[in-house]
C-alpha cells in the first residue's frame, strides 16, 4: 500500500498549487492528475526540462538523474519526471528552474 503525501508546487511568479501524490507516483504524473501541467521533455531523466528545486521534504529519484550533475543535485535540483515523494514536499517549479542549471559560459 503506497503512502500519500501533499506536494506544494510554487512558481516564481507567485502561483501556488497543492496536489496529492502517492509514493509510487512521479511528481509530474501527480501534478497532471491534479490538473497541473509541469514542463516536461523525455520523461526518463535524460533531458532536465522538468527540473524543480526541492525546498523542503524528501523526493526519491526512481532512476539515476542522468541529466543532473553532482553540483545540481547538491544544490537541491530534482528531476520531477522521475522523482517520487517520501514525505510532504514544497517544490519550486516552472521553466525558470531548468534555465538555472547552465549559464552563458562566455558572458
Amino acid at each position: 500500500m503506497s503512502e500519500r503525501y501533499e506536494l506544494t508546487l510554487e512558481w516564481d511568479v507567485g502561483r501556488v498549487e497543492t496536489v496529492r501524490a502517492k509514493s509510487d507516483q512521479t511528481v509530474v504524473v501527480a501534478a497532471l492528475d491534479g490538473g497541473v501541467q509541469l514542463p516536461v521533455g523525455c520523461l526518463t531523466g535524460a533531458c532536465a526540462t522538468c527540473t524543480g528545486e526541492l525546498l523542503s521534504g524528501e523526493l526519491h529519484h526512481r532512476r539515476p538523474p542522468r541529466s543532473l550533475k553532482p553540483r545540481h543535485v547538491d544544490a537541491g535540483y530534482v528531476l520531477l519526471c522521475i522523482a517520487e515523494p517520501r514525505s510532504d514536499c514544497r517544490i519550486r517549479v516552472g521553466s525558470k528552474v531548468q534555465s538555472e542549471l547552465v549559464e552563458n559560459p562566455w558572458k
Binding site: 535524460a46 533531458c47 541529466s67 531548468q98 542549471l101
Partner: peptide
C-alpha cells in the same frame, strides 16, 4: 550524448 546537450551547453 543527449544527457549532455539536452539540459544546456556546459563548457
Amino acid at each position: 550524448a543527449p544527457k549532455t546537450f539536452l539540459p544546456g551547453f556546459d563548457l
